[in-house]
Amino acid sequence: MKVDKHLFRALAQFWNLAYSCFTFGKVDLVPTIEDFMALLRCSKFQVDRAYSRAKGDSKCIPWKSLKDLILSHLDTKKRVDVFPLSIYSLVVFPKALGHVDEAVTDLFDRLDKRVTPVPVILAETFRSLNACRKVGKGRFIGCAHLLLAWFHNHFWKVDRVSYLVFSENYLPLNEIVATPRRDDILEEKWMAILQNLQKEDIE
């Protein structure tokens, strides 16, 4: 899924530090564990055993090291295991450009034990939005793709109903990726659109 940088920059400016939510005009909305679980189809995971670990002081592994493992490791299973770990680290929990957060390896190891990653993803989203808003700029360190998927899932009227998100056969991310979207709308235009959102525009 392509990240619309103009939309993302505009969206981040509506993050309300005081209440940890987005404030669009008179409308407040925030991503929830239930939202992200529905988008990622994690509903069968054990929510009460959410895994979390402070990631602020963790070390980084160069992406090149993992890439070399994927290309050259003699054990095919190990190569297959490292590949999704790399995607998880670079897309869901980006730390530094070209590097993988060491803490993600620990989290990834626990996924086989049916521990949901959703609260950690959500916590990183909140933490990063807060950091960007405090300084008025900065690089968002979190899953930008998922946050934009959440945004599109709530804000644009489409020919479906809300309960489909919780249907066994419905895959929200597949629909979002397959839906063509304009990426030539400038940040200023997005700011005007978001500022003028009404309750009836939100699902």
Score class of each variant (00 low, 15 high):
residue 161 V to R: 14
residue 160 R to C: 00
residue 147 L to P: 01
residue 136 G to L: 12
residue 141 I to T: 11
residue 159 D to W: 01
residue 145 H to Y: 15
residue 158 V to K: 14
residue 146 L to T: 01
residue 153 N to P: 05
residue 160 R to S: 04
residue 155 F to T: 08
residue 138 G to R: 05
residue 146 L to I: 00
residue 152 H to I: 04
residue 162 S to L: 10
residue 160 R to G: 02
residue 149 A to H: 03
residue 154 H to G: 05
residue 154 H to T: 02
residue 141 I to D: 07
residue 160 R to P: 00
residue 137 K to N: 10
residue 164 L to C: 05
residue 153 N to V: 11
residue 149 A to P: 01
residue 133 R to G: 07
residue 157 K to Q: 13
residue 158 V to M: 15
residue 162 S to G: 13
residue 142 G to Q: 09
residue 142 G to A: 15
residue 146 L to K: 06
residue 141 I to K: 14
residue 134 K to W: 02
residue 150 W to V: 00
residue 139 R to Y: 09
residue 158 V to E: 05
residue 133 R to V: 03
residue 134 K to N: 14
residue 134 K to H: 07
residue 136 G to Q: 10
residue 157 K to V: 03
residue 140 F to R: 11
residue 158 V to N: 10
residue 148 L to S: 07
residue 155 F to K: 14
residue 161 V to S: 08
residue 150 W to P: 00
residue 156 W to Q: 11
residue 164 L to D: 03
residue 156 W to F: 12
residue 165 V to N: 11
residue 138 G to E: 01
residue 137 K to F: 03
residue 146 L to S: 01
residue 153 N to A: 14
residue 156 W to M: 04
residue 155 F to R: 06
residue 158 V to Q: 08
residue 154 H to Y: 06
residue 149 A to S: 10
residue 145 H to L: 10
residue 163 Y to P: 13
residue 159 D to H: 15
residue 157 K to Y: 02
residue 133 R to A: 09
residue 133 R to T: 04
residue 165 V to C: 12
residue 161 V to A: 09
residue 140 F to Y: 08
residue 152 H to Q: 05
residue 151 F to P: 02
residue 151 F to E: 02
residue 158 V to Y: 08
residue 162 S to K: 13
residue 159 D to E: 09
residue 164 L to N: 04
residue 163 Y to F: 13
residue 149 A to N: 08
residue 145 H to I: 15
residue 145 H to F: 09
residue 164 L to T: 08
residue 164 L to A: 08
residue 140 F to G: 06
residue 139 R to A: 13
residue 134 K to C: 10
residue 136 G to E: 04
residue 157 K to W: 00
residue 155 F to S: 03
residue 164 L to P: 05
residue 151 F to S: 05
residue 163 Y to G: 12
residue 159 D to P: 13
residue 137 K to G: 12
residue 151 F to H: 02
residue 156 W to C: 08
residue 164 L to R: 06
residue 155 F to N: 07
residue 138 G to M: 00
residue 149 A to E: 03
residue 155 F to Y: 03
residue 156 W to R: 12
